[in-house]
Design a protein around this nucleic acid. Structure first.
Lengths: 233, 233
DNA sequence: CCTTGTGAAGCTGTTCACAGCC
DNA sequence: GGCTGTGAACAGCTTCACAAGG
């Protein structure tokens, strides 16, 4: 016996809800709308918004169509209203408390990062394995011991954890977070971590981003020759 | 007159070369291979490597097939040999010098990041607009003035720039980098930057990663109810 | 008119399943 | 026998182009 997932609804979304690619862009649209609102713009077309968000206007409209019909044909979108609808959809009407594990250079920078608070993200706790760091204050938060992690997560009902440890510690920290009840992890450590079903992991890998750019750089320096060869045939 | 792109070559790659999705995973495979080599493993199957890299084995084999046939049927892959082939393909046999613009918390953390050097990335220069930071040493590198950016890029033949400034400065810094000859940019500022054709931009947005996780968290907490409702009808 | 919302087409990426080869 | 390499099927994402509607 197998549970079948309906392949795709008539609108194009699957029964999992909004497509992943769209979810990843909604925060970008929200930021663009907030910026427009700050400039005193009350309404805008899909074209204007798409320029601010750096996407194709058709893609923007398709993305917004998954949320509902919040525009007016012939006119455009009301900036504040659309912003509220997106914020509601992505859960930004509430605050999300996160714990950062590992307060080395990167962890400390994340703790001090100003961009989180306006996006509904609050760094609620800092944890480290290093004795020398425990008890220190970073961004006004006292660093706790790794052993206190379960209690912190339980008391503060934290469901999102950030891993900013060395690669060697990443899997162990992941297991601790998951055991304590965390169901979403943002992993900055350059290591693949394995999690049980139901837990989401996103990975940000600084070296890999640069390696991808380096690949394209390499191609740029050899490509002209290739094209010339093709043309001269 | 229009230049037509061949839709798909027999192998599945387009005439642009290796698919983007594959390029993004090659550094992950390389890291997994390096790790295996450090453990003294001389050869491995696509299955073993796929576990280490956190992907499906069929996907791994398909990805590797774009590079050539570097495995042995019935046996697997020689770790060191395959590692070298991937390194060559992604340009990691040479060092890439990068400039970091903005040495606040994040820029400083990136400057000190240990993971770059082993991946062929060398932080060659640091630049900031703030008078108070110019002349300071971070990770053994003196911070230069923004005005010196063109000279630094020209002298050191830098083609990759990292933006770690506040959002407001991102577009201006981008324009400076591009004017000075940079053709690849890694943007950590929470802003969309526009670049001329031929320049690659990758964006790492810390808030957005967490917002995406928050969206899925929100769904996790409401999904069971939805299912129950559906069932009880 | 204008711009949204959306079927449909086209493209990219993933997975399957098996032929090919050691 | 076992594992790689790969065509083919499938799924998801993007883009087009136009109907719908202010």
């Amino acid at each position: 016996m197998t549970i079948l997932r309906s392949p795709r609804t008539p609108s194009g979304a699957t029964d999992r809800g909004i497509p992943d690619a769209t979810v990843a862009r909604l925060p970008v649209y929200l930021r663009a709308l907030t910026s427009l609102a700050d400039q005193g713009v009350a309404s805008c077309s899909s074209h204007e918004l798409s320029v601010a968000a750096g996407v194709n206007p058709a893609k923007l409209r398709k993305d917004l169509s998954y949320l509902g019909s919040y525009g007016t044909r012939g006119v455009g979108y009301e900036v504040e209203y659309l912003g509220y609808q997106i914020a509601r959809e992505i859960g930004q009407t509430q605050d999300w408390e996160v714990v950062i594990v590992g307060v080395g250079n990167l962890g400390a920078a994340l703790s001090n990062y100003q961009g989180f608070s306006t996006r509904g993200i609050r760094v609620a706790a800092l944890v480290d394995a290093d004795e020398k760091r425990i008890g220190q204050e970073i961004a006004g938060i006292k660093v706790s011991a790794l052993a206190d992690l379960p209690q912190i997560i339980d008391e503060r009902k934290i469901s999102i954890g950030i891993i900013a440890t060395p690669a060697e510690a990443a899997q162990q920290v992941t297991d601790l977070l998951v055991a304590a009840g965390v169901t979403s992890i943002l992993n900055f450590a350059p290591a693949i971590v394995h999690v049980p079903e139901g837990v989401d992991v996103r990975k940000v890998d600084l070296s890999i981003e640069l390696q991808i750019l380096a690949y394209h750089e390499q191609r740029k320096s050899v490509a002209p020759t290739t094209i010339q060869t093709a043309v001269s045939l």
